[in-house]
Design a protein around this nucleic acid. Structure first.
Length: 911
RNA sequence: GGGUGAGUAGCUCAGUUGGUUAGAGCGCACGGUUCACAUCCGUGAGGUCCAGAGUUCGAGUCUCUGCUCGCCCA
């Protein structure tokens, strides 16, 4: 695909091109895997249905996180040879989308009512087309390998049908019912919303202490009109209470006191007169009243407060709704009719004051529910709505987790899940909106029939009348997204091939913030309708904040810095994805730090450079596959890097299987940068630049290690890895693309403890020499002489002589590697275990400084030796497991050998 | 009020059956421009792992208490 690699990795040059190529080759489709024999049609499969983003707006970093992790998993399982499907889609987001379009209309001065239902919906579809295209484009930029041919939208024909079947089934099972209950009403959306869509928020407000006159022998009721200032004239007894919502006074149908309360107990059974309205209301005793709140007596407004609703039910109090759908006072509010609810509050308070019924006002801090979508204060209100009976569904959902059929990661969220399920309340699913799935329920005008149907009926099934009409309301969006894992696969067609093949799906990956909204509902509906959990694993990621831990919101002045597209533009998709995948642990929030993005971008370029180096060094050369090279030809560093690679491969497998993706990303990076680039590539230059050397070997090893590393890194950085893989000679890889290459397996015969031990000695020696050079300010380019007393390592160090020379910048003419040697005068020394390297730095070595340097090393060593000795002489030796004790003994031995060497060096300098 | 997460280097974060020298990146200090890479290379400094108590031969890791910050539920 590519002739020559550019000087640096330039994401923009490759990303979209590669993406289109992958897609055009069908690599995102499970069918392609089967066709190419890369997966077994009857073997294990992997399926993840994308959490459908709202078509309201644009993708943010949370979506990018979701996309990065889901694509990471998909690419991994695809490479592992599981038939893999990543199914994309989007969500109509009823209230949110309708709100956006209504706001647009408002700019033109039109309301949706003026436009009419049909025309309005048409407008929303137009909006949807636009935002959907933008979201899709963003997902493509993120590089996700989902099967676009299987893309779904919650309002699709198929999914709408699924919604109808689901509703009808639950209705027939008596799991859906309709009735007048207390709901959360948003006066701006003019719709009921569910409990979950209410966001509590703290407010500074007031507690108004008011009093109602009580009817007794000396006062039978008001004689003067409300507002005259004489309304309560003559009253001798009052019941005093506190309220946070004076505007609901007009809806009161009782006053309640705690039966134990000494202050008011005598009034139980009496009647008070409701100010403003003049209604006589009973004073009732109810356990629900808290004696310590306010005055111990409370007004009861059954139609506008959940607690009052309960009290009202117990005492048969009338439910008087005093507001309209938009939150203005209705005719039942008497003199306040037509006032907006907060204007009404002011007016009532003023009137109470005038009538001498306002006792006092206290400051009061409390929480008030707000509409999640438009932030309007919620009005609790009795309203006839459709509900899902949640308890029986929750039982099954909990069973799914208890039985192990479904697992939540991190597992602490299982507790949260259970807690919510155990305390679940019925789910209000009807919305007074136009954008959404119309409730599939019909009413007959000629009889009392109410029925649900999957197909639109034309007559009443009970009386045959043609005068029937469908429910005006639509369903909560989450009702349709709750069917997502199976509706997208073809349900309710039980024979749909995708449903057969991929359900139950493998994974639900999403933010923990929608565990209840979505995961819980998916689980409930799936257990009920499918008889299975929708997926076997739920993986929850945390929320993304900025580097200071602040929640990123559109209103932040630098919000643009956290726009995924800006980040992609600035750092590249791979850098963004790598950063998201490696900067946090599951379920924990992430402070996204631009410095990490920078580091990831640099990492992508580092791999690019390494590959460039390798390709430059094999130009025009037929590179042998590693399998064609006899083990005997491998040098120490070859055996070492291969051992490290295969150790990594094994660890990565274990980590991937236990969903520790972040750790995998970091480990692969450490291997590539710190081991492969910093040591192996540098060491390989010895042979590569020597025409007499066996150059086939480093070439083969370099390519082999690079190729396998690219495969390991692909799920994290799909673009740079594919771009480089394409540039590798075909002889070292199999297949046409990295995205469908096979996942690396650990070859245990490559694990080589001896090579790792020896290489560690070599590396420590090199580091030690470099350290001495730096300490003595030896010019970087200057080659220095060295004499090494290598002891048992003489043989291998001699074999690695050239590597040592190159990495430590030694003078080839003046390097001696002996078994043992007399100390070299006027030299600095580097001690690694039993090995000593003498560096006769003519004129540079300051004996005092050298002594000091070595003494520091010795002090440190001795401290550690003392520690280990103390341990070995204590109860540790008896109580700790044998292999741990053995390891400590070995360590002690090693340190003692090294300490002895250092002491000898110090003694030498003191002579 | 109940639940839960976090507190590790100046900053952002890793550290998964408890194993003894606690790591990375960035930043900082010093040195480096021929031969993959300054989006880089080499060397170095920097930590009472929030505090206290406990369990243990051994605690950043387990238990309890407290402190600070955050989130969820009511």
């Amino acid at each position: 695909m590519m002739a020559e690699l550019s000087k640096t990795w330039n994401p923009k040059e490759h990303e979209q091109e590669l993406y289109h190529w992958w897609e055009s080759q069908g690599y995102f489709k499970p069918e392609t895997q089967i066709e190419k024999g890369l997966a077994d049609k009857n073997g294990e499969s992997f399926c993840i249905t994308m959490p459908p983003p709202n078509v309201t707006g644009i993708l943010h970093l949370g979506h990018a996180m979701t996309a990065a992790l889901e694509d990471l998993m998909t690419r991994y399982y695809r490479m592992r040879g599981l038939e893999s499907l990543f199914l994309p889609g989007s969500d109509h987001a009823g209230i949110a989308t309708q709100n956006v379009v209504e706001r647009k209309l408002a700019e033109e001065g039109i309301s949706r009512h003026e436009l009419g239902r049909e025309a309005f919906i048409e407008r929303v579809w137009q909006w949807k087309e636009k935002t959907h295209a933008r979201i899709t484009d963003q997902h493509r930029q993120l590089g996700i390998s989902c099967d676009w041919d299987r893309e779904r939208f919650t309002l699709d024909e198929g999914l709408s049908h699924a919604v109808r079947v689901a509703f009808h089934t639950l209705y027939e099972r008596d799991l859906i019912y309709r009735g007048p209950y207390m709901v959360n009403w948003c006066p701006r959306c003019e719709s009921a919303i569910s409990d979950l869509e209410v966001e509590p928020e703290e407010h500074d407000s007031h507690l108004w202490f008011i009093r109602y006159p009580v009817i007794n022998d000396s006062w039978s009721g008001p004689q003067h009109p409300w507002g005259s200032g004489r309304w309560a004239e003559g009253a001798t007894e009052f019941i005093q209470m506190a309220t946070t919502r004076p505007e609901t006074i007009v809806g009161d149908s009782g006053v309640a006191i705690n039966p134990e309360d000494a202050r008011w107990g005598h009034l139980a059974g009496h009647r008070a007169v409701l100010p403003a309205i003049g209604r006589e209301i009973p004073i009732v005793a109810d356990e629900a009243v808290l004696p310590e709140f306010g005055t111990g007596a409370v007004k009861v407004t059954p139609a506008h407060d959940p607690t009052d609703y309960e009290i009202g039910m117990r005492h048969n109090l009338p439910q008087i709704d005093v507001m309209t759908n938009t939150g203005t006072m209705n005719a039942d509010a008497g003199p306040y009719e037509g006032l907006e609810r907060y204007d009404c509050r002011k007016a009532i308070v003023a009137d109470f004051e005038k009538e001498g019924l306002l006792v006092q006002i206290e400051n009061y801090h409390h929480t008030v529910g707000h509409c999640q979508r438009c932030h309007t204060v919620i009005e609790p209100r009795i309203s006839t709505q459709w509900f899902v009976r949640a308890k029986p569904l929750a039982e099954k959902a909990m069973q799914a987790v208890h039985s192990g059929e479904m697992r939540i990661i991190p597992d602490r969220f299982e507790k949260t899940f259970f807690h919510w399920m155990e305390n679940i309340r019925d789910w209000c699913i009807s919305r007074q909106l136009w954008w959404g799935h119309r409730i599939p329920v019909w009413y007959c005008q000629d009889c009392d029939a109410v029925w649900s149907a999957v197909e639109d009926p034309s007559t009443c099934p009970k009386c045959g009348s043609a005068y029937i009409y469908q429910d005006e309301d639509v369903l909560d969006t989450w009702f349709s997204s709750g069917l997502w894992p199976f509706s997208t696969l073809g349900w309710p067609d039980k024979d749909a091939p995708d449903l057969q093949r991929f359900f139950p799906t493998s994974m639900r990956e999403t933010g923990y913030d929608i565990l209840f909204f979505w995961v819980a509902r998916e689980t409930m509906l799936s257990m009920e309708l499918m008889g299975h959990a929708p997926y076997s694993t739920v993986y929850l990621h945390g929320l993304i904040r900025n580097e200071y831990g602040k929640k990123i919101s559109k209103s932040m002045s630098d919000a643009w810095r956290y726009d995924p597209l800006y980040i992609i533009e600035e750092y590249g998709t791979d850098a963004l994805r790598y950063t998201l995948a490696t900067s946090s642990t599951p379920g924990n929030d992430m402070n996204l730090d631009p410095r990490r993005l920078e580091g990831a971008r640099n990492f992508a370029n580092k791999i690019w450079q390494a590959a460039r180096f390798i390709l430059m060094n094999i130009e025009g050369v037929e590179v042998l596959p590693l399998s064609a090279i006899a083990d005997a030809r491998l040098s120490l560093e070859d055996r070492w890097i291969l051992s490290r690679l295969h150790r990594l491969t094994g660890d990565v497998f274990d980590l991937m299987e236990s969903h520790q993706y972040g750790e995998v990303g970091r480990r692969v990076r450490d291997f590539l940068w710190d081991e492969f680039c910093d040591w192996y590539i540098e060491a390989s230059k010895v042979r590569l630049y020597n025409e007499a050397a066996d150059r086939d070997v480093p070439r083969a090893v370099l390519l082999n290690v690079l190729e396998q590393s690219l495969r390991l890194l692909h799920p994290f950085m799909p673009f740079v890895t594919e771009a480089l893989w394409q540039a590798l000679p075909q002889s070292v890889k199999s297949g046409a693309a990295l995205i469908i290459a096979s996942w690396p397996r650990q070859a245990s015969e490559r694990l080589d403890d001896e090579a790792e031990t020896q290489m560690n000695v070599l590396m420590e020696l090199v580091s030690g020499i470099r350290n001495v050079r730096a300490e003595y300010d030896v010019q970087v380019g200057k080659r220095v002489a060295a004499t090494v007393a290598a002891g048992e390592y003489q043989a291998f160090l001699s074999e690695s002589r050239e590597v040592l020379i190159t990495l430590a910048r030694l003078d080839a003419e003046a390097l001696e590697i002996k078994f043992e040697t007399e100390p070299v005068a006027q030299s600095a020394s580097v001690v690694v275990g039993d090995v000593v390297a003498y560096l006769p730095l003519a004129g540079l070595v300051d004996l005092d400084a050298e002594r000091e340097r070595l003494q520091k090393t010795l002090d440190n060593l001795e401290k550690r030796i003392q520690g280990v000795e103390g341990r070995l002489n204590g109860p540790f030796a008896q109580k700790a497991p044998a292999h741990v004790v053995e390891k400590e003994r070995e360590r002690l031995g090693d340190m003692q050998v090294e300490a002895a060497q250092v002491r000898e060096q110090i003694a030498r300098l003191s002579n």
